[in-house]
Design a protein around this nucleic acid. Structure first.
Lengths: 141, 141
DNA sequence: TTGCGTGCAAAGGTTTTGCATGGCA
DNA sequence: TGCCATGCAAAACCTTTGCACGCAA
């Protein structure tokens, strides 16, 4: 329980600053790596992994496992958790697109899980798989 | 569309036979590998991967990406797809348990996704993350 | 006989880890 | 000064692939 002391390094701040510039978007470790390779700041891969893990634990960043082959995805959620409370993600199995959705139906879904299945659904972590409209009609399967 | 000719080898049958002995359970490649290492039949890892991919395409087996670190999970669904149509999976983030659920609410969920978000929800592939009752109360976080 | 299936090992990619050094408090 | 953070490279891990041989049809 005792939270370990964590320093506030330049890398830590730079990472948060970068993530804040792309709200609501998803980045992979590779994206971050590329971003910090060309810029003034350099950041090793290991550092990025370690920092992202820390940010996830702090609740500033959400981690998604979108696909088994590609690397993990991260999204900055910061302090405005109230605004995007009903936000969740859909991944199209056809085109691979990641879709942001937000509606109040998700609350109903959560209460159902809790009442009928005694399971606290974590919508921020769940990724719904399926087919988007384009792929269903176009047949990009 | 033209289905390629596929031989019915002993390995293929042995794999199906093994999966039929554990209905409703989840196995990893490692589990399968271990099972076929000690027994009379031996099966290489590559063969298992190839066979499982084939079984998934044939619709006999469902593949799940439960966790980013552990290997993929497989479940035999066989021909009785009608019986488990409303079946889906919950993964507890506390204890790591994988929970089987089946209820008709999922149908309502699907129709909502389709109507309001134009998204065909694939419940067999989606894994719902959250906390099970034990972890919510016990605090196995 | 034809050509898919198999085994072995090597390769590919993502993520983690060890160790010495640098930087925050 | 103490201790965490960083960088580099090596390691670990899961999965795929190449190639030669075996086996089903």
């Amino acid at each position: 329980m005792a939270k370990e002391i964590q320093y506030n390094t330049k890398h830590h701040e730079a990472l948060i600053a970068y993530l804040k510039t792309i709200p609501g978007q998803h980045v992979t470790i590779n994206d971050i790596c590329a971003h910090f390779t060309g810029g003034t700041q350099k950041m090793g891969v290991a550092t990025i992994y370690r920092q992202m893990e820390r940010l996830v634990q702090e609740g500033l960043v959400q981690k998604y496992i979108i696909d088994e082959k590609s690397s993990a995805c991260f999204e900055y959620i910061g302090d405005n958790s109230s605004a995007e409370k009903n936000c969740f993600h859909c991944k199209c199995e056809g085109c691979g697109k990641l879709i942001h959705l937000a509606c109040e139906e998700i609350e109903h879904m959560q209460s159902h899980f809790l009442k009928d299945h005694n399971f606290t659904l974590d919508t921020t972590r769940t990724v719904f798989y399926g087919l988007c409209a384009d792929c269903r009609n176009g047949g990009n399967a």
